[in-house]
Every structure is written in C-alpha cells, then in structure tokens.
C-alpha cells in the first residue's frame, strides 16, 4: 500500500498542493491530468528523485520520505524508455540485480521468466540502438521489474509509441500487472488508457487532486467541472436547482432525482444528446429546439454544436446519421436528453 500524506512540492511558478493518496497493494492506479498538471512530479517524489517541501510517503507501512531512491524499492519506467545506451538489452535488464540480495538462482529464474513473458530472449545480445519503440519499452519494463520492486511507477509509458506499439504495450501492461502482483502507478493524460488499464484513478489539475475514485465512478460521476471535461463530458454548465429541475441559464432541465443542496453543475456527455429533425417525445426526456452552429469532421464521427436558447450543446453523430438527417450549419433541429443522462455535481 502506498500512502501519500499532505505531499507538497514548491517550485518556481508551480506547486503540488497537499496531495493525499492511498493506493492499495497490487492495484493498477492511474494518475490522470493534462500536461503541466504535476503528474510526473508526484511520481518522481515517490521515487525520491525530486526533493519534497513537506508531507510523508509510506510504502507497505514503511516511511520512505527521507530515503534515497536506491533504498526505496520503487521502479520507474519513463515514456522515452531511458535505456542505458552503452549496454546491451540483457545488460540493461540485469543492471540492478547486483544491488539486490536475492539468491542468484531465483533472480535468474525471475529474469528469464520476464524476458520470456515480454518476448525479449531473441533480443538479449542486441544493442538498444537497433530496437523498435515497442521493444525498447518492453526492455524498460523488464529492467524495472527484474529487481522485484514493491511499486512500479509508469510515466506515460505509451505516449511516445506508434499506435500499433501503443496497443501492444497497453496489453502487455495489463497482463503483466495481473501476473506479477506488483502495485502499478501510471500517469497519463489519456482517459482511454485509464479506462482500459486503471482500477482506480485520481485527476490532477495544476498541482491539485480534483477527484479520486474507481475509474467507472470518475467516468460516470465526475466531481468538478475540470474532471467532467477531462473525462469527456463536453457539456458542463453551472445550474440552479429546484426540486427535480435544473435551470441552466434560460433552459429548464428535468432531472431523474432531486439533487443534494451543495450541487452546482450539470454535465451531459456528447454521446447522450440526440439530434433529430422531428420533435421527439417520451417520458423522462428533455426536448429543445435548436439551431446547428457548427459541424466538425472528426474522422470517424462528426461533432455538432447546437444552440438552444443561450446554451450551446455539443453532440456527436456518426457519418451515416449525419447524412440521414441532412445536417448542416444553420439548420433548425430538435435535441433530446434523457433525464438519467444528466449528471449533477
């Protein structure tokens, strides 16, 4: 278990503020946030690479706050692999073994298993200059796991990879985590990676944790406007609530349940907004008339902005749906939102 208590790091122009995290043993925890949010800083603080201003860090009950990196038993894998260029693949993987007092037979077996599992045996004697991005990342993983760390920190391990390798390494990470029984803590800015890999996640923004929880919960019930936008809720509006109604500017939305008194916002996923030529009707459906402001081609789908009253909703449509209702900018349409699709926070 990793326990981070009121961790604070002050740097010129940036501060990590009172980070509180608790990560369970053998959990795959993800730290999600945009570039510059301080994700890598949290990771490097846990690894002992950056000095902290205040706070405590415990791993499996042991206070490691004041220990140097080599005594923490924490592995780190960077997005740019950080392989030792003067060493071969095998020399990279076995680099840390001499510092860990385990009997050479069992550590040899462990390294052999890791190399087999990651498909690295045929590459053992190769120079790292002759490896693909995916192979390099597999070597970096094997090297970090070879010393059997209690925690593995992953700093955006998929970001620098081509799409093909990204999927490959993503699958490798998931399987390895299930097999090795080590806590994985990964930072990323890609929520799709979190959905695939993470069990729990924390959203970090400008050095502050906005929300922590199981991935499904954060996905479905974001707690702040930033978290909502970051997990893909494209429609986030401040609202005034009265019983089961939410007033968003001049629009009235009907909710499924009356919200608690401290709620301030509504959020709706773009995919939960239905656009039709004709007015839809039904129980628990919020229906508005609107005008198409913009249609943006996003490749596999189209993003459509529709103004209804003073509010602009963003919805997504498949290419075929777009052709079917002959949608274009300036066209009058009807939008429908299920009450159950409106998230309140």
């Amino acid at each position: 278990m990793i326990e981070i208590e009121t961790l604070r790091i002050e740097l010129p122009g940036f501060a990590l503020q009172d980070i509180e995290l608790s990560i369970q043993d053998e959990e795959f925890f993800t730290l999600l946030g945009p570039t510059g949010a301080g994700k890598t800083l949290v990771l490097e603080a846990i690894a002992g690479i950056v000095p902290i201003t205040s706070g405590r860090i415990r791993v499996k009950g042991r206070d490691i706050t004041d220990l140097p990196p080599e005594q923490r038993g924490i592995g780190i894998v960077y997005q740019d692999y950080a392989l030792f260029p003067h060493l071969s693949v095998l020399e990279n993987i076995t680099y840390g073994l001499r510092y860990h007092k385990t009997d050479s037979h069992s550590s040899g077996q462990w390294v052999k298993w890791l190399m087999e599992r990651l498909g690295l045996h045929p590459l053992a004697r190769r120079s790292i200059y002759h490896l693909s991005g995916g192979e390099k990342q597999r070597v970096a993983l094997a090297r970090a796991l070879a010393v059997n760390p209690s925690v593995l920190l992953l700093d955006e391990p998929l970001s620098a990879l081509d799409p093909n390798f990204r999927e490959e390494i993503r699958d490798v990470l998931k399987k390895l985590h299930q097999e090795v029984g080590i806590t994985f803590l990964m930072v990323t800015h890609d929520f799709a990676e979190v959905l695939f890999l993470g069990q729990r996640t924390a959203i970090l923004n400008r050095g502050i944790i906005e929300q922590v929880g199981p991935v499904s919960e954060v996905f479905q019930r974001p707690a702040t406007p930033f978290a909502a936008e970051f997990v893909g809720m494209k429609n986030v509006f401040p609202a005034v609530f009265k019983e089961t109604r939410a007033m968003v500017d001049d629009l009235e939305l009907h909710l499924q349940d009356p919200p608690e008194s401290h709620k301030r916002y509504v959020a709706i996923r773009a995919e939960d907004i239905v656009i039709e030529k004709e007015k839809l009707s039904g129980n628990g459906l919020n229906v508005f008339q609107g005008k198409v402001l913009e249609v943006i081609d996003r490749g596999l789908y189209h993003e459509v902005s529709v103004s209804a009253g003073k509010i602009i909703f963003r919805a997504i449509l498949t290419k075929s749906a777009l052709f079917e209702i002959k949608l274009r900018e300036g066209k009058e349409v009807h939008i429908a939102i299920r009450s159950s699709a409106i998230h309140v926070f």
Binding site: E44, I49, Y78, A82, F84, Y95, Y99, H100
Partner: peptide, 25 residues
C-alpha cells in the same frame, strides 16, 4: 539525460555507483 541516472538510482545503484556505471561510460 538525467533520467538515465534516475533510473539507475531506482534500480538500487548509489549516486557514486551511478556515476561510475552510467554517467562516466
């Protein structure tokens, strides 16, 4: 790259060990 030194430390090498096995080579 300073990250090479960071990785070396995380693998168990001391600052001096890292200097000898990573930085100097």
């Amino acid at each position: 790259p300073v990250r090479l030194e960071n990785v070396s430390r995380s693998l168990g090498a001391s600052a001096a060990g890292t200097l000898l096995r990573v930085t100097f080579p």
